[in-house]
């Protein structure tokens, strides 16, 4: 990994900070977010590591992390974070950038019809908000 000052303070990093409203440098990588994440086992990249990628200016590695889509915004991380860093918002900013690029992981037409009959409206709307637009 090659580090440069431009890479560390790229426009994309600034954009993620802007959208999330969180300062990436605030995180001191204690890992408490990962330790308590209820879906950590699905994430591939642990949540604290996603932040580390951003601290190192490696935004593409953050975007590639499955963790971005598996985060359920449950706020367990934020409620226990010693720094009051809202990781849920950083994950949302990463999702927002990807969705605005058109890289949505879910296409509504692919969802099975029976789902609409069985699942609560709340579930379907959340799914659309998080995965479609």
């Amino acid at each position: 990994m090659k580090l440069t000052r431009h890479g560390l303070h790229s426009e994309m990093i600034e954009k993620i900070e802007r959208i999330s409203g969180e300062e990436i440098s605030k995180c001191y990588q204690c890992g408490k977010c990962s330790a308590g994440c209820p879906v950590a086992q699905e994430m591939g990249t642990l949540p604290h590591r996603v932040v580390r990628h951003l601290q190192l200016g490696q935004d593409e590695r953050a975007f590639e992390a499955e963790a971005v889509w598996f985060c359920t915004s449950c706020h367990t991380c934020e409620s226990r974070c010693p720094k009051g860093f809202d990781l849920s918002r950083v994950m949302e900013a990463l999702r927002a950038v990807l969705l605005r690029r058109g890289e949505a992981p879910v296409r509504p037409e692919d969802l099975p019809a029976e789902l609409f009959a069985a699942a609560p409206q709340q579930a379907i709307v959340s799914c659309y908000r998080k995965y479609v637009s």
């Binding site: 499955e66 889509w69 598996f70 359920t72 879910v106 789902l115 579930a123 959340s126 799914c127 995965y131």
Partner: peptide, 10 residues
């Protein structure tokens, strides 16, 4: 797990 199962990401 919230909306994870709805999206059926995997």
């Amino acid at each position: 797990g919230a909306y994870l199962p709805i999206g059926e990401l995997e």
